[in-house]
């Protein structure tokens, strides 16, 4: 594991570079294939509406995968992530148009956990269409 960020260079409140991730229907079809999650709420509008959803929604695990990219891009080595957890609070609704949806992710160092293990807790915020889509979104990251 070779994180490019040093534990000594961060403090509580240090912000990670924020990123935005676009999601279209094509993105979801592709993710369904790669992940093996073929639940029709992620690609079939008629089915999604029949079960009470406003439209097709993104896989929660897709949103989870995008959000941690803010951390892995910052740390350099994805293996720096020692723990990662989220709560799925609101779905990311993906309309069938040219733009689709946008997942906006920001993150900051919330705590320096262990001077020996050089671990920090990073708190993530993920929103789409102005709504928080992940809650309790936290990662423990081992820095250099």
């Amino acid at each position: 594991m070779t994180a490019k960020i040093s534990y000594d260079d961060v403090e509580v409140g240090t912000e990670l570079p924020a990123q935005s991730f676009p999601v279209s229907r094509a993105t979801l079809v592709r993710y369904a294939g790669a992940s093996g999650d073929f639940n029709p709420i992620h690609w079939n509008e008629k089915f999604a509406k029949e079960v009470g959803l406003p439209d097709v929604i993104a896989h929660g695990m897709f949103t989870m995968a995008e959000a941690i990219r803010v951390v892995t891009d910052w740390a350099g080595d994805p293996a720096a992530v020692a723990e990662y957890g989220v709560r799925f609070t609101k779905p990311v609704v993906v309309p069938n148009d040219e733009t689709g949806a946008l997942i906006e992710v920001s993150a900051k160092v919330a705590a320096k956990l262990d001077d020996e293990a050089r671990t920090v807790r990073v708190d993530l915020t993920a929103t789409s269409a102005g709504q928080k889509v992940l809650g309790m979104s936290r990662a423990v990251v081992r820095l250099a």
Partner: peptide, 20 residues
């Protein structure tokens, strides 16, 4: 590719080895 992540540690064996 499905999550759009171009980190070379996922696709380039040499890059992954350089990270240990």
């Amino acid at each position: 590719e499905a999550i759009g992540d171009t980190n070379p540690a996922y696709t380039d064996t040499e890059a992954a080895k350089a990270l240990g």
